[in-house]
């Protein structure tokens, strides 16, 4: 693009050069945008073709099911409090699955992240394999592990808990090790000089530095895991998702119980999201920080 390197370019040359460059850049952006638009349109067309019911027939019925559910819930609104009480234990189970999985996953991730961080790992050759292991754990969707475990262990909350915990190890392990990389190594060296074991160096030298960030990430994971736990219930792993599938299968005229479960799940997700985002803001910005709803 520097065509006039041997002679001093005149202002008009610079101007035409600049405009040509701009035109080229715009052309490139236009082409990229066009490709993107074509991909989107073609993609939606393909998806529509492959779907059992097409979009153009379906969108008119999109409110049928919600209308049924809301209508039936409204008709038998006096029964809803009873249903809330009835399904509260299931909701608790869903939350417990997420809670236990997050705790177990976070504790394993803590150890794994230390092993995967340069400068903290007790042996250098450990770093690469641990990182690959975390990558794999992160890549496996929870449902895959859960379905296999349901086959082995039977239905119930334990397969879901293990499945979510394993995915959590992968997800948090990576985030934790990113946090570890920013931790100061001086306390670790200090502890090493007094003869502290690796475990002591990590627990006393690193963890206090990174604990707020860890906690913040773990809380975010907990929010995600509640949703995952509800979904896994739907494929047979207990909790409120399992009840939801059962009540849905009873069909029309019985949707009031499904409505109660929808409401419970919605309320649980919103409340946990709010609580955890308040806590996370405190952790990362101190108490004075006003809730701006920061994502991370």
């Amino acid at each position: 693009m520097t065509s006039a390197a041997d002679t001093d370019p005149s202002p008009t040359d610079i101007r035409t050069d600049y405009l040509a460059q701009m035109r080229q850049k715009r052309m490139l952006n236009m082409i990229l945008l066009l490709i993107f638009a074509t991909l989107m349109v073609a993609g939606f067309y393909t998806a529509d073709q492959r779907n059992a019911g097409g979009f153009w027939n379906g969108w008119r019925h999109i409110l049928d099911f919600p209308a049924d559910v809301v209508g039936e819930a409204y008709e038998r609104a006096h029964l809803l409090p009873g249903y809330f009480v009835k399904y509260l234990p299931s909701l608790l189970e869903t939350i417990n699955i997420a809670g236990a999985a997050t705790l177990i996953g976070a504790m394993l991730a803590l150890v794994a992240s230390m092993l995967a961080t340069r400068g903290l790992a007790p042996a250098g050759w450990l770093i690469a394999p641990v990182r690959r292991l975390l990558d794999i754990l992160r890549a496996v969707p929870e449902i895959v592990i859960a379905l296999v475990l349901i086959f082995l262990l039977g239905g119930g909350p334990v397969p879901a808990m293990i499945a979510i915990a394993l995915h959590t190890v992968g997800a948090l392990g990576k985030l934790f090790s990113e946090v570890n990389e920013n931790a100061s190594l001086k306390p670790v060296e200090g502890l090493a000089s007094t003869g502290g074991s690796w475990m002591q160096q990590m627990m006393l030298g690193v963890v206090p530095q990174v604990a707020p960030n860890y906690l913040s990430y773990a809380l975010l994971r907990f929010e995600i895991n509640i949703r995952a736990s509800a979904i896994l219930g739907f494929v047979g792993a207990g909790g409120i998702g399992y009840d939801l599938r059962n009540t849905m299968s009873w069909g029309q005229g019985k949707f009031d119980e499904a409505a109660a479960i929808f409401l419970l799940l919605f309320a649980a997700i919103v409340i946990v999201d709010q609580l955890s985002s308040t806590f996370r803001n405190r952790l990362t910005h101190g108490k004075a920080y006003k809730d701006k709803g920061a994502v991370l």
Binding site: A47, G58, I62, F65
Partner: peptide
């Protein structure tokens, strides 16, 4: 909700 309206599939 959506699978009630559109049936199973990628859409």
């Amino acid at each position: 909700v959506l699978s009630r309206a559109f049936g199973p599939g990628p859409l």
